[in-house]
Design a protein around this nucleic acid. Structure first.
Length: 431
DNA sequence: CTATAACTCTCAA
DNA sequence: CTAACGTTGAGAGTTATAG
């Protein structure tokens, strides 16, 4: 069995470039929510030393000096481009696992006689031609190695031109290559493991790969044992055919401004519940518990800190936005204290179960809003989220996320289509 | 004491 | 002018608690 891992190159920046070709060749970054940190950087921005996840305000001066373009993230656009890309990639194998917004695995059982390097180039060419997006591709006998091969493809290692096939390399070639790569690059090895392994003198992928897996299991974890087994070409991680239902659904945001009053916090919490409950209904589940948290700005060390949270049971598990909102707001009132400047809040729906088999309460007095919710979901799907919302969400804007540098809704709204002037006629307006 | 619940830590994109 | 630092989810391992 061979796995392919296909990954968009600096995906968010590439999506922006499709609709704004002037960004080609220039240093571009896309910022996280609230215009906080750099989360996607073009090659030019990376070359200038912009690091991943660095707070943008720290980079502003040098960004200005080098003419770096910074954009707020336009998730609606990236999600839409993602689903188009996944459809195109699905044409290359009947076995696809969508792993994240910008990458997927393809299972290639039965492709043994293929020239994968050539197949990879074909995939790249089609995605580029049909969508304008650049991707890199790694092929290998395990998922962990496919991720690693993708990494090499992206960096142009081993003569790769956007495609790297470990399956075609000899053992000694592969060993030589892997001894030049640091363990931090491995899928499943984060900052903590990197530090601990480095302390024991294990710094290269090859060094880790040749360490006894049983010893690693004893001294670290099963997870690391699996990783090392996979690095040796023995698959432990299968393709996931369909995404299982979520076990918990969370919604949270940092605020654009500080919030000190209960009222805007309530509006925020109601909005988070609305977002999460919609997801809950779309997978046909009901929630049995809800957690609410609020927090002051943990980065502001000179400010009074307070980060309470509370978890409340939901006596009659439900997916009704209104019922969930009333419980969450009760929780919020319980933890809210005035005199603090809040910067973030969120909720988590937990203890999820299948809505169709949930045990109804025989003596229930709750009103059944099932049909109302169905109507609300239809309206919001068609006209955009938030078109119809509960009064509790309010009209208070004080808490909303900052997005001051956002591009248009090129693909997800008629009004976002670039305006084309033909004589005096304007096309692309939705009137 | 065991089974489970609840919580903490780590990782990923 | 100043201050300014993401979101969502899973799983393993550990600790607390119930029975």
């Amino acid at each position: 069995m061979t796995f392919a891992l296909i990954d968009g190159n600096n995906f968010y920046v590439s999506c922006e470039r499709v609709f704004n070709p002037k960004l080609e060749g220039r240093p571009v970054v896309v910022l996280s929510n609230n215009d906080g940190c750099a989360v996607s950087r073009s090659a030019e921005a990376r070359a200038l030393g912009i690091k991943m996840a660095v707070p943008w305000f720290q980079m502003k001066d040098m960004a200005k000096k080098h003419g770096i373009v910074a954009l707020s993230s336009n998730y609606a656009l990236y999600a839409d481009m993602s689903s188009r890309m996944m459809s195109v990639l699905a044409q290359f194998s009947p076995d696809q696992e969508i792993y994240s917004i910008d990458e997927c695995f393809l299972g290639l059982a039965g492709f043994e006689h293929y020239d994968l390097a050539a197949y990879g180039q074909e995939i790249r060419a089609r995605v580029r031609k049909w969508l304008g997006l650049p991707v890199s591709i790694g092929f290998a006998p395990t998922k962990t190695l496919a991720k690693m091969a993708n990494n090499c493809a992206k960096k142009g290692l081993a003569g790769a031109n956007g495609v790297c096939d470990f399956g075609r390399m000899s053992e000694s070639e592969l060993s030589r290559l892997l001894s030049t790569i640091g363990i931090r690059e491995i899928w499943g090895v984060g900052a903590q493991l990197t530090k601990q392994l480095t302390d024991r003198g294990i710094t290269s992928v090859e060094a880790l790969r040749t360490t006894d897996a049983k010893v690693l299991r004893r001294e670290f974890s099963v997870v690391l044992e699996r990783t090392v087994t996979e690095l040796n070409g023995i698959p432990c991680i299968d393709m996931e055919e369909s995404a299982p239902d979520k076990q918990q659904i969370m919604s949270s945001r940092s605020f654009g401004d500080y919030v000190t009053e209960l009222e805007p916090l309530s509006a925020a919490v109601a909005s988070f519940i609305a977002i999460a409950a919609e997801k809950l209904r779309s997978q046909g589940s009901v929630a049995g518990m809800v957690n609410v948290f609020i927090r002051t700005n943990t980065f502001a060390e000179n400010q009074k800190q307070y980060q309470p949270s509370v978890t409340l049971p939901i006596p009659e598990p439900t997916s009704d936005t209104l019922a969930l909102t009333s419980i969450a707001l009760k929780g919020l009132r319980g933890i809210f204290k005035s005199g603090y400047s809040y910067k973030k809040a969120g909720i988590t729906l937990m203890d999820l179960s299948d809505g169709s088999t949930a045990q109804p309460d025989m003596f229930s007095t709750a009103r059944d809003n099932t049909k109302l919710m169905a109507v609300m979901d239809r309206i919001n799907t068609q006209w955009g989220r938030g078109t119809l919302h509960s009064a509790a969400e309010g009209i208070s804007n004080g808490w909303k996320t900052k997005r001051e540098r956002m591009s248009q809704e090129f693909t997800t709204s008629w009004s976002g289509l670039p305006v084309v002037r033909v004589g005096s006629v304007r096309a692309g307006s939705n009137g």
